[in-house]
């Protein structure tokens, strides 16, 4: 029963992170949340006895994917600031 509770917490956190990532309009924040989501997902996969995939998700999905998106988010944020400065 405790195990189930533990699982429920894991899943609830995962879904919360996903909703948060999907719902934040600020690009950098969204990407950071996405990275957190990916790392949490990796954690759950390790729990589900899939360490290979957990490693890959942490390194590739959250890590490199996040790094790529972060660069884009930074540009988007800078552009947004420029736009506001112009106004």
């Amino acid at each position: 029963m405790t195990l189930l509770l533990f699982d429920l917490v894991l899943i609830a956190t995962l879904l919360t992170l996903a909703v948060a990532a999907l719902n934040s309009a600020e690009p950098r924040r969204a990407v950071m949340l996405f990275i957190a989501f990916g790392l949490w997902l990796a954690l759950i996969w390790a729990r589900l006895r899939a360490p290979d995939v957990a490693l890959a998700e942490a390194a590739i999905g959250a890590g490199l994917g996040g790094a790529l998106m972060l660069a884009a988010a930074r540009r988007a944020a800078r552009r947004r600031e420029d736009d506001e400065a112009q106004r």
């Binding site: 969204a30 996405f34 990916g38 589900l48 998700e57 999905g61 998106m69």
Partner: peptide, 28 residues
């Protein structure tokens, strides 16, 4: 529902993660 490209990409990635997660779950 979300127009900006970055948000669409995050959405697609989360969709994909959902499917991956499902596959991991049935592997257990």
């Amino acid at each position: 529902v979300h127009a900006p490209l970055l948000r669409k990409l995050i959405a697609i990635n989360i969709m994909g993660s959902g499917v991956f997660h499902l596959l991991i779950a049935i592997a257990e």
